[in-house]
Amino acid sequence: MIQLIYVADPMCSWCYGFGPELQALLEMMPDANLDIIVGGLRAYNQEVMSEEQRQTIRGHWKHVAEATGLPFAATGMTQAGFKYDTEPACRTVVATKMLADHLSPVQLLSVFRAIQHAFYAEGKDVTDLRLLSDIAVRALNETDGAESFDASSFYETLVSPLCMADTRQEFEQCQRWGIRGFPALLLVHNNALHMIASGFTKRAALVSAIEEIQKNGRLL
């Protein structure tokens, strides 16, 4: 079985752009197992976003839109006092893993994608914990095919010290692996980690990298 580790942040625009490529790869390899590790792109940032910062980030978004065709809302990051803190969105992914361990990591990607869609395509403030709870529960119930989750219970997990600590541990794991940019996709092969994507990467290149590692045990 192919074992992949996806290291990303829901509020990373190139992770948003990479989503369809990752989905296409997983559809080609339905037996692959995927672990999701959150990276903390701008975790714990408490600086209110300036107009200059907003325009700089919008420049990055324009590049992603041109490369992928994905939608970006003009209202993104325009909320009064908006702080580009990616920890809450990352923590939502961790809370999802804690509460929905009966779902496969591939199914759990639905929450990751729902946060991205809310932030980029709808321009919502996904630093809001109540909103994040609503987004996650809606995605989970759609994926699970039942009303298995409710926003109040999800919120309780989201604000728990354990969830905060687990999120920080994932950030620290990324640092130990030496991963500073997102997205990153790792392949576990022969008890070793192999980087098959560092940044936005097309599906064909991902497949070639996996095949090369499986054949020779390394990337050329």
Rank of each mutant, 00 (worst) to 15 (best):
G123T: 03
L109V: 00
N141K: 08
R168M: 09
E172D: 15
S133A: 14
L131A: 11
D144I: 09
R130I: 07
E142Q: 13
D134I: 04
L162Y: 07
S110M: 08
V111L: 06
K124C: 04
E147G: 14
W177T: 06
T143E: 15
M164Q: 12
D150Y: 03
E172G: 01
G123V: 04
V137T: 12
G178R: 08
A151W: 00
I135F: 06
A146N: 12
R130V: 11
N141R: 09
E122Q: 15
L158W: 06
F112M: 12
T143L: 02
D128F: 03
V137W: 05
K124D: 06
N141I: 08
T143Y: 06
S133K: 04
E147P: 06
M164V: 11
S148E: 05
A151V: 13
F119M: 10
C163N: 11
Y120N: 08
I135T: 05
Q173V: 07
F154T: 08
F149H: 13
S160E: 08
L109D: 07
R113H: 15
Y120P: 06
H117N: 12
A121F: 07
R138T: 12
S160P: 08
I115L: 12
L131H: 02
L109R: 14
L129F: 03
D128V: 03
A118R: 10
Q116D: 04
H117V: 10
E147N: 15
L132E: 04
T143H: 02
D150Q: 10
E170T: 07
L129N: 11
L109I: 06
F149D: 04
W177C: 01
T167D: 06
D166T: 12
E147W: 03
Q175P: 03
L109W: 01
L162R: 13
G145P: 07
I115A: 02
L132R: 04
F119S: 03
T143A: 15
A136V: 07
P161R: 02
A146Y: 00
F171T: 02
I135A: 01
A121Y: 04
A114H: 03
D144P: 02
D125A: 09
Y120H: 07
E170C: 02
L129I: 05
